[in-house]
Amino acid sequence: MALNTPQITPTKKITVRAIGEELPRGDYQRCPQCDMLFSLPEINSHQSAYCPRCQAKIRDGRDWSLTRLAAMAFTMLLLMPFAWGEPLLHIWLLGIRIDANVMQGIWQMTKQGDAITGSMVFFCVIGAPLILVTSIAYLWFGNRLGMNLRPVLLMLERLKEWVMLDIYLVGIGVASIKVQDYAHIQAGVGLFSFVALVILTTVTLSHLNVEELWERFYPQRPATRRDEKLRVCLGCHFTGYPDQRGRCPRCHIPLRLRRRHSLQKCWAALLASIVLLLPANLLPISIIYLNGGRQEDTILSGIMSLASSNIAVAGIVFIASILVPFTKVIVMFTLLLSIHFKCQQGLRTRILLLRMVTWIGRWSMLDLFVISLTMSLINRDQILAFTMGPAAFYFGAAVILTILAVEWLDSRLLWDAHESGNARFDD
Rank of each mutant, 00 (worst) to 15 (best):
A2H: 12
N4W: 11
T5M: 15
P10K: 07
T15V: 11
V16T: 12
R17E: 11
G20L: 12
G20D: 11
R25I: 11
D27K: 13
Q29C: 10
C31W: 00
Q33F: 12
C34S: 01
D35A: 08
L37V: 12
E42I: 07
N44L: 07
N44Y: 10
N44C: 09
S45G: 13
H46R: 08
H46Y: 11
S48Y: 15
P52R: 05
R53Q: 14
R53A: 10
C54A: 00
K57H: 04
I58A: 11
R59M: 07
R59S: 08
R68L: 12
A71T: 10
M72E: 07
A73T: 13
F74S: 15
F74Y: 05
M76Q: 05
M80A: 10
F82W: 08
G85K: 13
P87E: 06
L88N: 04
L88P: 02
H90R: 13
I96Y: 08
A100M: 02
A100S: 14
Q104W: 03
M109A: 13
Q112C: 09
D114V: 04
T117M: 02
M120V: 04
V121K: 04
I126V: 10
G127W: 03
V133S: 01
V133L: 14
T134F: 14
A137Q: 07
A137N: 09
G146T: 10
G146E: 02
N148Y: 02
P151E: 02
P151V: 03
V152S: 03
V163G: 05
V163C: 09
D166V: 15
V174A: 15
A175Q: 02
V179P: 14
V179Q: 02
H184Y: 15
A187E: 09
G190C: 02
L191C: 09
L197G: 03
V198M: 13
V203H: 05
V203T: 14
T204L: 08
H207T: 12
L208N: 08
W214G: 11
E215L: 13
F217R: 13
P222G: 11
R226M: 10
L230N: 08
C233N: 00
C236Q: 00
H237C: 05
F238K: 14
D243K: 06
P249W: 06
H252D: 03
I253D: 03
P254A: 02
R258P: 06
A268T: 04
L270I: 15
L271P: 01
A272R: 00
S273C: 12
S273G: 08
L276I: 06
L276A: 05
L278P: 04
N281T: 08
L282T: 09
L283W: 11
I288A: 03
Y289D: 01
G293Q: 06
Q295I: 07
T298S: 07
S305R: 05
A307N: 12
V313I: 08
A314T: 10
V317W: 01
S321F: 00
I322T: 07
V324T: 09
V324P: 05
P325A: 06
K328G: 00
K328Q: 01
M332Q: 07
T334K: 14
S338Y: 15
F341V: 11
C343K: 12
L347G: 15
L352M: 13
L354I: 13
L354T: 09
R355C: 09
M356W: 09
T358D: 09
T358F: 10
W359S: 09
S364Y: 00
S364L: 00
S364R: 00
L366M: 11
L373E: 05
L377W: 07
Q382T: 14
I383L: 12
I383F: 13
L384R: 01
T387P: 00
F393Y: 07
Y394P: 02
F395H: 02
G396F: 04
V399R: 00
V406P: 02
W408K: 04
W415R: 11
A417T: 07
A417D: 09
E419Y: 15
S420L: 11
D426M: 13
D426W: 15
